[in-house]
């Protein structure tokens, strides 16, 4: 029963964030402007046009093929904020447990180091060669800063979100 509620909620939330997709006139300027679409299966027009209609979008891999370059949004003659909408749908997808394994790793880096890309041994020696301090003036050097970051991540429930097992909402559609 709990899953069903979650699923209902997800549908409602998608409908809310994707309401503007109803303005789409299928002109295709978005997909013809999309650099990813030339090399991947991403069809941004179809994805956005159908966003509010089907909860399957939450497990659609195309959601993650967008580089967020904003070409589509810039050129949309109906002024649909396509990328902003896509980002909102991505967030719902992640909350429903569809975080990609590679992205989970990036999240673990943030939780552990306060950086998506923490410093490497190779870079430490590069810094020394350049006459720089081994550790930059970031949370890498200021540990109390790292503690602050961790406190905030905890307060936002980020650890819980990242730890969530994959549980595609498509499996419990009604």
């Amino acid at each position: 029963m709990k899953d069903r509620t979650a699923s209902y909620k997800a549908i409602d939330r998608i409908s809310n964030v994707a309401a503007d997709s109803l303005k789409c006139i299928n002109c295709g300027v978005c997909s013809s402007s999309c650099p990813s679409g030339r090399h991947t299966s991403l069809n941004i027009r179809r994805l956005i046009k159908n966003a509010a209609k089907n909860i399957d979008i939450l497990t659609n891999k195309e959601l993650w093929m967008c580089t967020t370059c904003y070409n589509c949004q810039e050129r949309c003659p109906r002024s649909i904020d396509i990328v902003d909408m896509l980002l909102d749908i991505r967030a719902i997808s992640v909350q429903c447990g569809s975080l990609l394994p590679e992205h989970r790793k990036t999240c673990m880096m943030l939780l552990e180091h306060g950086h998506a890309v923490p410093i490497s041994e190779g870079c430490k020696s590069k810094r020394k060669e350049l006459g720089m301090e081994e550790h930059p003036e970031t949370v890498h050097k200021y540990k109390e800063g790292l503690e602050e970051v961790r406190t905030l991540l905890l307060a936002c429930g980020f650890e819980r979100l990242v730890g969530k097992k994959n549980n595609p909402p498509g499996d419990n559609t009604l």
Partner: peptide
């Protein structure tokens, strides 16, 4: 120098995952 800053956090990934965070 800005002291003690973290990841911005990266827009493409983290904004996609959790806007509040």
């Amino acid at each position: 120098e800005l002291k003690g800053a973290s990841c911005c956090p990266a827009p493409g990934v983290f904004r996609s995952f959790d806007k509040e965070m």
